[in-house]
Structure formats: C-alpha cells, structure tokens
Design a protein around this nucleic acid. Structure first.
Lengths: 193, 193
DNA sequence: CTGCTAAACTAACGATTGTTAGTTTTATAT
DNA sequence: ATATAAAACTAACAATCGTTAGTTTAGCAG
C-alpha cells in the first residue's frame, strides 16, 4: 500500500497548513505547492478536500474517545483519573500537534455525517469528564466549586496545549506532565490545614 | 453620524457569523443575508471585508492592552494582579463574546499593518502576564513551577471563556469570578501546612 | 411639493475555488 | 527491452468570491 504513504504525507502537510491559516483559507493549490506538485495531482491520492479534514479530525477524536474510555473503566479515584486525562492530552498533543488545530477550530466544516459523529464524541467526552469531577466532589476528593467552571478550566488548557507547547521544546515532557498536574489539580483539591 | 449605527450592526452581525464559521468561510453574501440586504449594499457602510475583521479584533485587543496596563501600574501584589486579570477577561468576555472568537481564531487573516499591530499587542500582553508571575515566584507568593506552564494554563482558560460561558448563563458573573479565581490560582499558591 | 442624501438595489467584473478529463512521465517487475 | 501501473502533468469546467458602477427607492428638510 505505497499509496497510503503519499496520502499520509498529503494529510500531514494539510494539517500544518490548516493549523496556520484554517481549513477554509487553505486552497488545494496551496496544499499542492507545499507538496511540490500540481493541485490536480492530489486527486490521485485523495478524493476531496473534505476527506482530508475528516481524516485529520476523526482519527484524533477517536484517540481521545478510546483514551477516555480506558480511564473511565480503570479502578482509580477521581484525582488519579484526572491525572490520566492530563497525560492523555499531553501524549496526543506531542504525537499530532498540527492536527489538533483542525480538531479545535475547523470541526464545524465537517460534512453532515462526520459532523454528527464528531459532535457526539465530543459531547460524550465532556460528559465523562464531568462525571469524574462530580464523583470526586461527592467523595470529597475535590472542592465543591461550580462543576462547569472546573471542567472547562481544565479542558480549555488541555485543548489549547497544541498552541504553545511546540514553541517551548525546552520543556521536558515529564516536567510538563508533573507541573501541569500540579497547576491544574491543586486548585481544586482541598487544602490541608 | 447615523452611518455608525448601521455600520455597528454589520460588525456585530459579522462577529456572530465569524464565530460560527470563521472569517474565511463567511462570504459577504452570507453577511448581507443575515442583515436582510444584498451584498453590494454593505459597501455603503464599510469599505471591505478586511475592515470588518480589523474593527472587531483591534478594538478588543486594545481593551486588553489598556486593562493590563492599569493592572501593571497598580500597587498590588502578584496574586492580586492575577485576580484583576481574571476579572478583566471575564468582563471583556461578557461584553463581547462573539468578537473574541475572531480575536482568538482569525487574527492571522489581518492584513500586514494591523497584523503587526495586533501581534505586538499580544506579545506585550503575554510578557506582562509573565512578568507578574515571575515577580510572584521571586517573592514566594507563587510556587516555582515552570513559568510558561503557569502562564499558559491560566491564559488558555481565560482566552477560551467565550466558548462556553454563553451556554451556561445560569452561572452568575460574581460566582464565575470567585470560583475562577479559586480554580486558577489555588493551584499555584503554596499550601499552608 | 421639491430637492437632497442615505441606503437600498441590479448587474456585472476579474480572480479564484474545488474538481474532472485526458495525457504524459516515471518507476518497477518480468 | 517491454509491459504495467502509479503518479505526475496540462487544460479547463462551473460555481463562487470580494468588489465596483450605475440606478432606484425612501425619508427628511426647506
């Protein structure tokens, strides 16, 4: 399947351009130029511009979904689960920072079917996140601040990791995980007096 | 200047569409339809699509810049300054949630001159934010985690407030401020044993 | 009622969009 | 050396883009 290699190169290249300018502002001629070929040649490998976007976003969304399911089904307390979620986001960000830009900013340009599929995954993901926090509050592992504020505070940071982490490659991945866990979680864990 | 009223309506309408689909995916005909007029009629009030984008973004960026300057020049310690920054973001979000989408996602579509102006404001804003955190660490008001991680963790949450706050209008603005300050800051403030 | 101006309209422009059709080049296996 | 298939090419399409020119309508001042 050598065809898959070239296809992957196109998708990788597209993800970079989509990150810089957004899906709608990137033309097939832009993408072709970045690959060193003509726009028409792209169609030997992909079926449409839309297919490229879907391939980028759906693959990543499924990674988050399966990652979250593993965490939900583990025998951990709420705080440990949140630590695993932080690690999940850092790992996915390190493996595909470019694609995450599309997932965050261009998901609304997915066509009907993939859009519905994506939106369901996103809603489910957020609800599982919310449930973990609720469970933690119920068991007094977590302060009883407004649930939405806690969830979206953490989620906002994790979702935009891709924006700034690549710039700061002096930060080791393990330090990132450790400090991120402290910064994101200590604010919601009850103080010991 | 009645012309300004209609112009403001167009910009307000554009901000909503830009938030939903992004600058590049919104056509002048889309915007006109939302206003109940024809595309050509828009040009009686604005000079170009680009001007609309610049008007949305620059105005907000300047609000953040002047807000930050006031905080920097105040006689407060680092934690109090961070609290003021959180309030600044919440206030701006409440007053113009739609425009913040453009500021966050479509700034790269600004033309040369406004792009440079915006980027300078953004870099300066981040540097002032960073300085406050650094000052707090030096005076032991703040834990010495990695500075970048603390800054961007807070900034990511504050910058994406516009995405979810409008959906949760059951949250009172004062509760939002209080809980947001707790969630964002307790994680970086040293524990008392 | 008349004249003026703001703000809408119709029609069209040149450029660019995603994509298709048909052809040529390149590389590999026999 | 020849056949085959992958992957590039040229050329062009119909649709849509931001914008302009010129015209008509609506509301208000005298």
């Amino acid at each position: 399947m050598k065809i898959e290699n070239r296809r992957d190169e196109i998708i990788k290249s597209a993800a970079i351009l989509f990150k810089e300018r957004g899906y709608s502002a990137v033309t097939m001629r832009d993408l072709a130029k970045a690959m060193g070929i003509k726009a028409a040649s792209l169609y030997n490998h992909i079926q449409s511009k839309q297919e490229i976007l879907a391939s980028i976003i759906i693959k990543l969304a499924e990674k988050f979904t399966t990652g979250m399911d593993t965490i939900v089904n583990s025998n951990k307390n709420a705080i440990e689960k949140l630590e695993r979620i932080i690690e999940l986001h850092i790992d996915v960000t390190l493996s595909n920072a470019d694609g995450l830009a599309s997932l965050n900013n261009d998901w609304m340009h997915l066509e009907e079917k993939n859009l519905q599929y994506f939106e369901k995954m996103r809603v489910d993901y957020e609800e599982k996140f919310r449930s973990i926090v609720r469970e933690g509050v119920a068991k007094k592992e977590i302060n009883s601040y407004n649930i939405e504020i806690m969830v979206f505070s953490m989620l906002s940071t994790l979702r935009t990791l891709y924006l700034w982490y690549p710039k700061k490659d002096e930060i080791d991945a393990e330090i990132l995980k450790r400090d991120m866990i402290s910064v994101l979680l200590k604010g919601i864990i009850p103080n010991k007096h």
